[in-house]
């Protein structure tokens, strides 16, 4: 029972991290029609910026603003210089160009920081444990991360559902004319949305930095998992991104915890461990396959 609660919390925390990434990616695709592989690089940059600044200043709290600043800034520059010419291009060109960006960012970090993973300290105030149930301590930092994730999700919902910016975002790319007729500079809107997506990716990166090791290539695996999330949720849908994140985050975490245990009911120990590990790591893809069979455009399809 305690294991289950702990795993559920871990799953929730992974889900919220995925949501931060999926929200940005799905917005950028939904509004601008651009598939951005380098979204994972922004996550990595956030983690690196946070970890290095924190180490340099000896103050882990400084990680947050520096990560947000770095990722948003890089995101905005990236949109202006590289993504903008890609709006009119096909997906193939977009994939190729942003693939080039990944190579660049990975090479750059390896050159600037080095290949060995770096660690980031948890802020002292958050480094302890909280007893969430009698006899069940849970790391304070992870709880804080979850709290932040929930706040951001709510904030995002507020922006999209209640503000003028959100209205423009919902109007989407297919109603470009309408948006322009409202006197909005579409180029600025795109840059803003891209910057927001980059900021969220950087936030996700810096938040997981103390939990996982910060290393080159950390962005790609999470990017592919994020793809699974938005494919399951329906590309372009924030609600889909949220539900997809929960589904995939929980499946992955619970699968890793329980698949080997469950298999041991039928198979002998070592074989169960082997298969269990394999099964756990492909669980989310199986979920995606099932969703695709039932609803090829995801759980919350956008548009026709």
């Amino acid at each position: 029972m305690q294991l289950l609660i702990e795993q559920l919390l871990n799953g929730l925390q992974l889900s919220l991290t995925l949501f931060l990434l999926a929200a940005g990616l799905t917005l950028v695709f939904g509004i601008m029609g651009v598939i951005n592989l380098a979204h994972g690089s922004l996550y990595m940059l956030g983690a690196y910026a946070g970890a290095s600044v924190a180490a340099k200043l000896g103050n882990p709290w400084m990680a947050l603003p520096s990560a947000l600043l770095a990722s948003a800034l890089v995101g905005i520059v990236m949109e202006y210089l590289i993504v903008r010419p890609l709006y009119a291009r096909d997906h193939l060109a977009q994939v190729l160009a942003t693939f080039g960006l990944i190579l660049f960012f990975n090479g750059f970090i390896a050159w600037a920081v080095g290949r060995p993973p770096i660690m980031m300290d948890t802020p002292a105030a958050l480094s302890g444990f909280i007893e969430i149930l009698p006899g069940l301590p849970y790391p304070t930092y992870r709880l804080a991360v979850m709290g932040a994730g929930v706040c951001v999700a709510l904030g995002l919902w507020y922006i999209i559902a209640r503000t003028r910016l959100g209205m423009l975002i919902r109007a989407g790319s297919d109603k470009r004319d309408m948006v322009e007729a409202l006197g909005v500079n579409i180029a600025v809107l795109f840059t803003l949305v891209f910057g927001l997506g980059a900021l969220l990716a950087g936030l996700a990166g810096v938040m997981v930095a103390p939990i996982r090791s910060v290393q080159v290539g950390m962005g790609e695996q999470v990017l592919i998992t994020t793809f699974v999330v938005i494919v399951v949720g329906g590309i372009g849908s924030i609600r889909g991104a949220f539900i997809g994140s929960l589904l995939i985050g929980m499946c992955d975490t619970l699968g890793r915890a329980y698949a080997p245990i469950l298999l041991k009911l039928w198979l002998s120990g070592s074989i169960a461990d082997g298969f269990g590990a394999a099964l756990a790591s492909i669980m989310i893809y199986l979920v995606m396959a099932i969703v695709l069979i039932v609803k090829p455009r995801g759980l919350f399809p956008v548009g026709g």
């Binding site: 590289i82 160009a97 080039g100 990975n106 050159w111």
Partner: peptide, 18 residues
């Protein structure tokens, strides 16, 4: 650190020599 150069090379192909 060849990727620092190779990445932009790929990018340029995508943008200018599809």
């Amino acid at each position: 650190h060849w990727q620092i150069f190779f990445g932009p090379f790929v990018l340029l192909i995508a943008l200018y020599a599809p």
